[in-house]
Computed example of a mutant assay.
Amino acid sequence: MTKKKIPMRKCVVTNERFEKKQLLRVVKTPEGKVIFDKTGKANGRGAYVSKSKAVIEKAKKTKILAKHLETDIPESVYENLLKWIENE
């Protein structure tokens, strides 16, 4: 029996590679709206961020998500990411 391949993704802030499950995904939908994708399956361009409060705050400060998704990121997306980490 062959081993199942584990999907790996890179955090846009730290440039470290992790399993897809260990990261949070932010998506720019085809309509141009930016959302936090809890399922990891939303349609659109995605960027991954580590599940760390410090990393999310750094992403907000450096505007790295805005660079990767080529659009402005609403404050509510960062708030949703931080809430998700606190509740997990």
Results as ranks from 00 to 15, higher is better:
Ile35Val: 15
Ile35Tyr: 05
Ile35Ser: 07
Phe36Gly: 00
Asp37Lys: 04
Asp37Asn: 08
Asp37Pro: 08
Lys38Asn: 15
Thr39Met: 08
Thr39Gly: 08
Thr39Ile: 07
Thr39Trp: 07
Gly40Ile: 01
Gly40Pro: 03
Lys41Ala: 08
Lys41Cys: 08
Lys41Thr: 13
Ala42Leu: 12
Ala42Gln: 15
Ala42Thr: 14
Asn43Phe: 08
Gly44Asn: 13
Gly44Ile: 11
Gly44Cys: 14
Gly44Arg: 11
Arg45Lys: 15
Arg45Trp: 03
Arg45Pro: 01
Gly46Glu: 08
Ala47His: 01
Tyr48Gly: 04
Tyr48Met: 05
Tyr48Gln: 05
Val49Phe: 02
Val49Pro: 06
Val49Cys: 09
Ser50Met: 05
Ser50Phe: 01
Ser50Asp: 07
Lys51Pro: 10
Lys51Ile: 10
Lys51Ser: 12
Ser52Asn: 12
Ser52Ile: 03
Lys53Arg: 15
Lys53Leu: 14
Lys53His: 13
Lys53Thr: 14
Lys53Pro: 08
Ala54Thr: 11
Ala54His: 10
Val55Phe: 02
Ile56Glu: 01
Ile56Asp: 00
Ile56Trp: 00
Ile56Lys: 01
Glu57Asp: 12
Glu57Tyr: 05
Glu57Ser: 06
Glu57Lys: 13
Lys58Leu: 12
Lys58Arg: 12
Lys58Tyr: 05
Lys60Thr: 11
Lys60Trp: 07
Lys60Phe: 12
Lys60Met: 12
Lys61Asp: 06
Lys61Leu: 07
Lys61Asn: 08
Lys61Trp: 04
Thr62Ala: 12
Thr62Asp: 15
Thr62Tyr: 09
Thr62Met: 11
Thr62Cys: 10
Thr62Ser: 14
Thr62Gly: 12
Ile64Pro: 00
Ile64Asp: 01
